[in-house]
Simulated assay, not measured.
Amino acid sequence: MNNNNRYEYPPVFSVDATGHLPQQQHYHQHHPQMSAAGRMDPALVPCWTFPPARYHSKRRGCGGMTSAAGTLLIMVLLMVFAALGLGAYQIMKIQTELAQLKQELHIQTESRAPERLVGNPIKDPDQTKHSQAAHLMGQTQNIESNPLQWESHHGRAFTDGVVYRGGGLQVNETGLYFIYSRVDFLSKSCHFRDSVSHTVYVKRIDGSLMTLMGDRREGYCRVGSTEVWRDGSNLGSVHLLKKADWVFVNVSKPALMSKSPYNNYFGLFKLT
């Protein structure tokens, strides 16, 4: 068998770096080199290279930053400017409120100025002044209970800044006081000429006595009647008391007073 077959190879095209065909060469040349066995070695296959890979760099914006980084930077700047704007608004709001508060305080100060001009001192609300007041309730009296004795601790009775002792109230400050007293008389029999009196008086530090108020009742019952009669006396007015003054209540017939503690009472409180 004859092995002198000739092999034809397909044409090979070479291209440059831009991908164009500068020339077309047909490699039909056969080399006469023969192998030791008498065969014709095929021609060497030419080597070629593809166009080199082009390096496509990412598009970059100003300063070499990518578009995503630029967008993020813009968002951060917007947030910073928004925070600064909000802070400026809050500061302006606080300044406005402070200005309004100062204006209100100025108006209040001006409104109190006439009080200073006329000599009325402005009272400090933080200073607590001890009050001067007392309310005494009736209790069972003896036949000769003068002055009258009172209940000072139980029920609605109290003393505040005032001393109670021996039926009297002693004030600790000089000033105007409202003094009041009520007595209730109750009995089953009486005489035509009978009368009852109700008196409030003050005892000074030097021992002198002075009547502050008085009431006298005559003809308060019907002679010969078997029904229980009842009558009351009320006294109350403003008086100037001096420090250490004692105030007492006296009635002409203590035995005729009713036993109700709510119908018999005595008290005072300081006005100025």
Rank of each mutant, 00 (worst) to 15 (best):
P51Y: 04
N5R: 02
D184G: 02
G85L: 14
M40A: 12
Q108C: 09
R217M: 10
M40G: 07
V228M: 14
Q170V: 05
H153W: 06
R39S: 05
T174C: 04
S237R: 10
Y7N: 12
L235T: 01
G61N: 03
V249E: 07
E144Q: 08
S225N: 06
D245I: 03
H26D: 12
L86N: 02
K129V: 12
F178Y: 15
L78E: 08
E104I: 04
K243I: 05
E97D: 12
M65Y: 04
D194E: 15
G87C: 07
K259T: 12
V12Q: 12
D184F: 10
S181D: 03
N146W: 00
I94F: 10
K253P: 02
M213L: 12
W48H: 14
L209Y: 10
Q33E: 09
A53Q: 13
Q25A: 04
Y55P: 00
H26Y: 12
N234T: 08
G138S: 10
P125E: 09
T96C: 08
M213S: 04
H191K: 12
V238P: 06
I74D: 12
Y177W: 06
F185I: 00
Q127T: 11
D16Q: 05
T226C: 01
A69F: 00
Y164E: 13
R116D: 04
R204F: 10
S14Q: 14
P147E: 07
H191T: 08
L169Q: 05
G175V: 05
P254H: 01
D215W: 00
I179M: 03
A255T: 02
S189R: 11
I91V: 13
